[in-house]
């Protein structure tokens, strides 16, 4: 029972990271119908940006007090911002020209972008995992007899806050409504005077910024990062988005936590070497038997 709870909490924190990444997949898919294969690598990019910022700030270990708040805020916002810009650039340079091309063309391009990013990151930070400073102290509280670390709470807390903020943004602002309209029917949205290019750019900006947040958080959580992390994490986050119902923001969140929990239990029960097989098997099962996911398409309806 104790182990079960520990694994559950472990899975939920893992899931928080997947959920943050999944939001970007789901938003982009919802709005332009593209599986943005490079999104996972934008997440890795986020951890590298955060690492670089922290290094520049001279941070190499645990922080406390004002320094903790200020430095973490700078690294977090910096990583989010830089990732947002990277996402927008990728859309502008690689995807925009293909918006009306046959469906598989942008997917192939996205795979290409992913490979380029991975290679660039490999050259930038080397081929092996790099350590990430444990900036956030990790005191734990006991919940039902299980120690829950501050870092775990940070992951989950950030994921939930981001999702709520995103929901509020999408439903209560003009730009958010433009995004929903574009997702539903791009031509109609254009006729209504919505600037499609700007809206899609915004989608990439937000989605990629969230991946940047996830990148920072994962660095703090694992205390290491690696140029190739984004491939696996991206696929799992995509699985999460599909499981929740692609195009659906709440679904991405739900799917993210579920995948995190499933992975954590699979690792516990079958061993780490089976966790990927389990998650990919779920991906396949969901795509084959319930491609609309658990929550269908509620926010962005587009077949």
């Amino acid at each position: 029972m104790h182990e079960f709870l520990a694994q559950l909490i472990n899975g939920i924190s893992l899931g928080g990271i997947y959920a943050l990444i999944a939001l970007g997949y789901t938003m982009v898919y919802g709005i332009i119908g593209l599986i943005n294969f490079a999104h996972g690598d934008v997440y890795t990019l986020g951890s590298f940006f955060a690492l670089t910022i922290l290094t520049a700030l001279g941070v190499s270990g645990e922080l406390h007090g004002v320094a903790l708040v200020v430095d973490v805020a700078i690294a977090l916002i910096g990583a989010a911002l830089l990732c947002g810009i990277a996402g927008v650039l990728i859309e502008r340079l690689a995807y925009r020209r293909l918006r009306n091309a046959p469906r598989l063309a942008p997917l192939i391009t996205a795979i290409g972008v992913s490979f380029i990013l991975e290679n660039v990151m490999q050259i930038w930070k080397g081929p092996s995992p790099v350590p990430f400073p444990a900036v956030v102290p990790n005191p734990s509280v006991m919940i039902a007899g299980v120690a829950v670390g501050a870092q775990q709470m940070l992951v989950v807390g950030l994921a939930v806050v981001m999702m709520v903020a995103l929901q509020l943004f999408i439903h209560n602002t003009r730009l958010g409504r433009a995004m929903r309209a574009t997702a539903q029917d791009r031509d109609a949205a254009q006729l209504m005077g919505i600037n499609i290019n700007k809206t899609i750019m915004l989608t990439f900006l937000i989605g990629s910024a969230l991946a940047g947040v996830a990148g920072f958080v994962s660095g703090v959580y694992y205390q290491s990062t690696w140029f190739f992390n984004g491939f696996g994490a991206g696929l799992k986050a995509f699985t999460a988005a599909v499981l929740g119902g692609i195009g659906n923001i709440g679904g991405a969140m739900l799917g993210g936590f579920l995948i995190g929990i499933i992975e954590s239990f699979a690792t516990w029960k079958f061993g780490g070497q089976w966790s990927n097989v389990t998650v990919f098997a779920i991906l396949i099962l969901v795509l084959v038997f319930r491609p609309s996911g658990l929550l269908g398409e509620a926010v962005f309806d587009r077949a």
């Binding site: 293909l98 391009t109 795979i111 290409g112 972008v113 380029i116 990013l117 290679n119 660039v120 050259i123």
Partner: peptide, 15 residues
Amino acid sequence: NYHFFIYGAILVAIM
């Protein structure tokens, strides 16, 4: 070390 970059660049540029 540039293999991936080359494949990636080919995919993007050709598409």
